[in-house]
């Protein structure tokens, strides 16, 4: 464990807690994409399949449980909670996220570290996480609004992967044989996607106008 990875995990934890608290407190999920939340629940479910079979540390298992619990709770709130579900922007959140999953699955079947059931699903979760934010970014562009909690959620979510890139650089230089090209490239693609969002977010903040994401 190194400071970059701890910072990354804490930022990631903060992002899901910010979102969960927002939805739980104001009983509204306006501006939040259910598609992205469903993709994240799938990301965690396929990445943490080994939670019962492999033990790394108390911290590792605890965080996995928190991420699984929070992501499924958010999906549950948005789909089934009597008050929250009414605030969901169904006709704006129309990104075909299932079409994102198929290419990720095919890619995981082609490019992976080991061809085993767990490893292919783990790689699938890595590719899926890189693109999981897309429905949310599309929704933001359509609804033209970005309330600061959703903005913070995306900011933290992007920040966590940025910290992880620093963690991979650190581990590359401090641990012999620590090379995971697949993880590094997927993480880089993901962060670049957020960087793009941040650029337009910063512009809208600086010029004090509505967030305008590119078409």
């Amino acid at each position: 464990m190194n400071i970059f990875r701890l910072a990354g995990d804490m930022t990631h934890l903060a992002s899901v807690l910010v979102l969960l608290l927002k939805i739980h407190t104001i009983k509204s999920c306006a501006g939040v994409s259910l598609k992205t939340q469903e993709l994240y629940a799938i990301v965690f479910a396929t990445r943490y399949l080994d939670i019962l079979t492999s033990f790394v540390s108390i911290y590792n298992t605890l965080m996995k449980l928190i991420f699984l619990g929070s992501s499924f709770s958010i999906v549950w709130y948005m789909k089934y909670h009597k008050t929250v579900r009414r605030t969901y922007d169904r006709d704006q959140d129309t990104f075909r996220h299932w079409f994102l999953m198929l290419p990720c699955l095919l890619l995981a079947l082609l490019i992976h570290e080991k061809f085993t059931f767990f490893e292919v699903l783990w790689t699938f979760s890595l590719y899926l996480e890189a693109v999981a934010i897309l429905p949310q970014l599309v929704l933001l562009q359509r609804t033209r609004n970005i309330d600061n909690l959703t903005g913070q959620y995306i900011f933290l979510l992007g920040g966590y992967r940025g910290f992880y890139i620093l963690n991979w650089i650190y581990r590359y230089f401090t641990e012999p044989h620590y090379v995971h090209w697949i993880t590094w490239i997927a993480g880089l693609v993901q962060t670049l996607l957020y960087a793009d969002f941040f650029y337009y977010y910063f512009l809208s903040w600086k010029n004090n106008k509505k967030l305008q994401l590119p078409a």
Partner: peptide, 10 residues
């Protein structure tokens, strides 16, 4: 950390 090839990150 854990042995090589073992996913020790979240």
């Amino acid at each position: 950390d854990s042995p090589k090839g073992f996913h020790d990150e979240l």
